[in-house]
Amino acid sequence: MAVSALRTEIINVKKILIGIIFLSFIGAAGAALAAGIGDQAGSETYSDPLAPFNEKMFWINLKLDKYIMRPVATGYADVLPEDVRRHIGNFWDNVGVIPRFANNLFQLKMVPAGTEVSRFLINSTLGGAGFFDVADPWFGLKEHDEDFGLTMGHYGVPMGPYLVLPFYGPSSIRDALGRAADGAMNPMSYTLPWYISLPAQAGATAASAINYRSLNLQLFEDVDRYAVDLYGAVQDGYIQRRRKREAENTF
């Protein structure tokens, strides 16, 4: 049963995903965005119009984590000591400078945008190709994380309905579009032909995700252990943190 059921499930998910992409192109997403996630006040839960899709995707992501990500990350953590994995995390972080810089710029945050450039130059050289974050302790230059979802938020685009993405997990209509925009800023995607850049970017995403997962083995377990309703806990965690970031961004 399992394989065919999973296949039907994936086909359903595909259909819904294609539907969403189509809708967003014909501008219906605008209406969906206006509807918004909604406040907790009235119904006490977030409005979740995509819940049937989201819950399926959430379940698939959990399986993906249980049978692939977690075992791989655990094996990886057995081979590489924690401090080495932290340096690898720094490396991936350093590589992701372009969307951070661009989105600071888009929001007219000139000083943080400049800081991102300085951090990249310092860490890529003195920090040994980005494996060491020396810009923070030596020069007091802290990272200013921004993404295109937050940029859209900065200019008044609401978060839109909650959306669970395959592999990436919790997101929203707006933030998923933002993620695509940030991905398009990756130099690989405009300097290399797509049949090289797509697998290369997927490989980089997988490698950094495994590294990240290996550094958060306990954290993931804790959430699972303490939550009464895991979907609701993850959904709320995502929305609360994004709202917090947005509130910091409006001034």
Binding site: Q40, E44, T45, V228, D229, G232, A233, R241
Partner: peptide, 19 residues
């Protein structure tokens, strides 16, 4: 904890289960 209100997080979980 890490910007996430504990009570708010439980509220979303509990109300989903109740609904």
């Amino acid at each position: 904890i890490d910007q996430i209100s504990l009570v708010g997080n439980y509220r979303n979980q509990f109300n989903r289960v109740i609904n």
